[in-house]
Nucleic acid binder design. Structure first.
Length: 743
DNA sequence: CTAGCTGCTGTTTTT
DNA sequence: CAGCAGCTAG
């Protein structure tokens, strides 16, 4: 026990050994947050305060949950299966599985990912013949998820205008459809289990009596509903140990509500907030940059990271002419670092949006550097995997319309859109699933067609067509029925292998010229199933499918080998690397344009930047490109304001070897409140006469501030340039009058 | 019924 | 530059 605690600093120790009371731990990046959580769990169990069954721990990602489990089991010989550690979604799923009847769900309920959800919504909008210009499916999806997040059912939605009324109708139809199919979306997992706990006293009291200690990781990212869920589950008895960092709240777009921290203080009478500010990860310069940057945000709880290590290296900033050059620079630096002995897996390339990975991947590929992309197209989201999963879902539950529609005609078996549409309306009319409708139709067809009262009334053509369609469906029904029968009792990996062969998927991709990768992925699915059986010690098909919906990532070919890590800043949260390359630091990209209109959008972007910076242990690269290919056209952006918020004294500007790059630092207008001199760096004298105005050039306007030329036309007195300014938007300026200065 | 073409649109971040 | 909906030709 003492060895367990001896390695902790005083604040960590205090947090770990807190008595049974609710507490808020403000844990800065790299301050040993996970360690505190796992050590506390081990401490609680080892000191006999609670059994392992009395602990519930919520993490933000499955990865974090897994890590926590392994760390705990390395400290303590506990049965990890009795521990309730997982994401909100994972825990809700567990709860609903255990009480599916009380929750009004079939035992085999399946989980929809957002793409599945969108598909259902599209189908519903179509069946209600809604005007999709007026009601874009995405917006309907957004509306439904928001309503659920507010805890509202379709019948409870406020219908203050026609639009909302219409939305409520869609929501209701969606609810009905999901119930019919026995599927739940992500938000539903939460809402449904929240309702279960609210309504069912027996279940509620059972869990309240059981979970005496509730630990919450990344508390700043909890949503309103999640917070209510926690409060409900905790009741009066449980102690909630909440660990979070308001500066790392980057999921507001998904409903995260930092206000929960203050509410938590009030609701649970938190008497003391413990702050963990000593950072064990990054060196001084990196930490200073992060601290100074985040100070530009308002309404922080307040926290300043410090380290006992030295300043370390300066932060390297690179100004690239194009995104292509940026990638080339990164490749060079990566090679150099590797030559110095840094493992590729200890280097990360971070970017704001997934689309940015393409250029980087291209450069890495050409340089023959192994890399691994996280996020983006996830394993379980790949088309061929979705098809395979659809078959598996149908084996588990043939009433899953989504799955059925996905593969009814894939591989092609002559079930066209028309027959499916027909089937759809029959299903709607009868209030059944498509599968049931198929069975009926098939049985009707089988009994009535031979007797055929039809042939007296219809011409041959008009009667052959439906006959053909029936054959397709008949074949499909037979296929599915035999698959369901044959898979009964088979171990999971064999079910997957069987399905791949008998569904015709394997054959389909074998025949396809470009199918090799897809085949490989399908084989990887068998591996995934095998390792799932291994890890979960359970071979339920249903469980595997849930695992697939809840944990979209982590399975990817090319496991294990030393590879560069590529991911968005969002998915880098919680990770650390020896070296971090943060690319695309441009206005419009990072901070992202879309964040401009959102309340608090800019501050969230800044927190995102803060997260990115604090991923680095020793070395941090920040880079931006003057021109970038985006959405099929070249765009010219000015450097991100965040660059400017970092003091020059922490920065170093390396130059690429052979290229002559504009050595001037071009920065956007200083934002309010920042207090460092922008012009301290040496700026080489510019040859004013020689610099003709050109696209991509950075300029300064007396009134509008810094900008970049994105277009020009005319000549002589008529010469005009279009300039995109950081603040004033994009404007056409007559060169004769506008006193433009080269930046 | 299918495959292949065109033309449109939308574009952040994720459990 | 996608990805997708809708259309046309086989």
């Amino acid at each position: 026990m003492s060895s367990l605690l001896s390695a902790l600093n005083p604040e960590q120790l205090e947090a770990v050994t807190l008595p049974h009371q609710s507490a808020l731990v403000l844990a800065g990046a790299g301050s040993g947050k996970t360690r505190v959580l796992t050590t506390r769990i081990a401490y609680l169990i080892q000191s006999g305060q609670v059994g392992s069954h009395g602990i519930l721990a919520v993490t933000f990602t499955n990865k974090a949950a897994k890590e926590m489990l392994t760390r705990i089991s390395s400290i303590l010989p506990v049965n990890t299966r009795g521990l309730w550690i997982g994401t909100f979604h994972g825990l809700c799923n567990r709860l609903l599985r255990a009480h599916h009847q009380d929750a009004g769900l079939p035992q085999t309920f399946q989980i929809l990912d957002s793409a599945d959800q969108l598909a259902i919504i599209k189908r519903i909008l179509k069946s209600l013949s809604a005007d999709d210009a007026k009601f874009p499916p995405r917006q309907v999806q957004w509306f439904i998820n928001n309503a659920k997040e507010e805890g509202l059912r379709a019948s409870q939605v406020e219908t203050y205008d026609d639009f909302a009324r219409e939305m409520a109708v869609f929501y209701l139809a969606y609810e009905v459809q999901c119930n019919k199919e026995g599927v739940v979306d992500f938000a539903e997992l939460l809402l449904r289990s929240y309702e279960l706990l609210t309504r069912n006293e027996i279940v509620r009291e059972h869990y309240r009596g059981r979970f005496r200690h509730i630990l919450v990781d990344e508390f700043q990212d909890t949503s309103r509903l999640q917070y209510r869920w926690l409060r409900l589950l905790a009741g009066e008895q449980a102690a909630i140990f909440a660990v979070g960092d308001d500066d790392q709240s980057i999921y507001a777009f998904r409903g995260a509500n930092t206000g929960n921290m203050k509410e938590f203080e009030r609701d649970f009478r938190v008497s003391k907030i413990i702050k963990l500010e000593q950072n064990y990860r990054s060196q001084g310069n990196i930490l200073d940059a992060a601290n100074i940057l985040i100070r530009n945000n308002s309404g922080r709880l307040g926290k300043n990271l410090w380290t006992s290590e030295g300043h370390g290296e300066p932060i390297r900033v690179f100004n690239a002419p194009t995104d292509f050059d940026e990638a080339a620079f990164i490749v060079d630096e990566v090679k150099a670092l590797r030559a110095e002995g840094v493992a590729l897996s200890q280097m990360a390339l971070l970017y704001r949006s997934n689309a940015q990975s393409r250029v980087l991947e291209h450069a890495l590929f050409n340089a023959a550097l192994p890399y691994r992309v996280y996020g983006g197209m996830r394993f379980f989201e790949r088309l061929e995997i979705k098809h395979a999963l659809a078959y598996l879902r149908l084996i588990a539950n043939p009433n899953d319309d989504n799955a059925l529609l996905r593969v009814a005609n894939f591989p092609v078996r002559g079930i066209g859109a028309r027959s499916l549409e027909q089937l759809q309306s029959e299903a709607t009319a009868q209030g059944t699933s498509l599968w049931t409708a198929m069975l009926r139709k098939y049985e009707n067809g089988a009994t009535s067609v031979p007797g055929s009262g039809n042939d007296t009334r219809l011409g041959i053509a008009g009667y052959k067509k439906p006959d053909k369609a029936k054959k397709g469906i008949e074949g499909f029904v037979g296929l599915l029925e035999s698959m369901r029968q044959d898979c009964e009792g088979l171990p999971l990996p064999e079910i997957v292998a069987y399905m791949l062969e008998h569904s015709g998927l394997a054959a389909h991709y074998r025949a396809e010229r470009e199918g090799a990768d897809r085949l490989e992925n399908l084989n990887e699915l068998i591996n995934a199933a095998t390792s799932f059986v291994h890890e979960a010690e359970d071979d339920g098909l249903m469980l595997f499918l849930n695992h697939a919906s809840l944990e979209a990532g982590e399975h990817q070919a090319g496991h294990g080998q030393d590879a560069l890590q590529l991911m968005t800043v969002h998915s880098a949260k919680g990770l650390e690397f020896h070296s971090v390359f943060l690319s695309g630091l441009e206005e419009g990209l990072f901070p992202h344009d879309n964040s401009r209109n959102e309340a608090g959008g800019l501050e969230e972007e800044r927190r995102l930047m803060y997260v990115a910076i604090t991923r680095a242990r020793r070395r941090l690269y920040l880079s931006f490109a003057q021109s970038r290919m985006l959405h099929g056209q070249t765009r010219y952006n000015i450097p991100s304001r965040f660059l400017q918020e970092i003091p020059d004294s922490l920065l170093k500007w390396p130059q690429p070897l052979q290229k002559t790059v504009n050595k001037t630092r071009e920065l956007p207008p200083r934002s309010l409140g920042a207090g460092y001199a922008a012009q301290t760096h040496a700026s080489p004298v510019r040859d004013a006469a020689a610099s003709r105005w050109r696209i991509g050039q950075n300029v300064i306007h007396a009134k509008f501030g810094a900008g970049v030329i994105v277009n020009c036309e005319g000549c002589g007195a008529d010469a005009r340039v279009e300039v995109k300014f950081g603040r004033a938007g994009t404007k056409w300026l007559l060169l004769e009058y506008a006193k433009l200065l080269p930046a």
